[in-house]
Amino acid sequence: MKGKEFSEINVGDGASFTVKIDEKLHNAFSNVSGDKSPIHCNEKFSSKTKFEKRIGYAFLLTSFVSRLYGEYLPGGTSVCIKQDAKFVKPYFIGDELKVIGKVIGKMESTKFVEIKTEIYRNKNELIFRGNGIVQVILKNE
C-alpha cells in the first residue's frame, strides 16, 4: 500500500488487520526482548497464577501498532512521536487479535496526525487502547 501524504489523510480514515498469536510469534518476541519471565514462558508456573496459563506479551501489542502506522495508516510516510498504551486485559497464545486505527485529528502546523488505536482479542474483547501521534515527514508538503 502506498503511504499517504498529509493532505490525503482525513479525520475519520481508518484501517485494521488481524494477527494470530502462535508459539512462533510469542517466542520470537521473547527472544527479541529478552523477557523470559515465567508468566510468559513457564506453563507450570503460569498454571498457579490467576490466569492459569501463560499470558501474551503486552509490548508485543505495541509492535502491532507499529505495523498499523508503518503499513496501513498513514503507511510508511510518518514517524511515531507519541503513543499512549493501556493494557486493559490479558491475551493468550492461540488468540486472534484485531488491530484497529482511526484518525481523530490533524494539525497542519506540525503535520501531526492523531490516531486512536485499539486491539481486540477473539473479535470482541478490548485488550489494548491508546492514542498515538505520528508526524508525516514527506519533504514536499
Binding site: I81, K82, G105, M107, E108, S109, T110, F112, I133
Partner: peptide, 24 residues
C-alpha cells in the same frame, strides 16, 4: 524540541491558528 512541536500543535488545536515551518 519535542514539547515545542506539541505546543504548536496544541495551539492550532485549541485556537485554530496555524503556523508555518519557518515560524515554528
Amino acid at each position: 524540541s519535542f514539547n515545542h512541536l506539541m505546543l504548536m500543535s496544541e495551539i492550532e488545536k485549541k485556537t485554530g491558528i496555524k503556523f508555518t515551518i519557518k515560524e515554528i
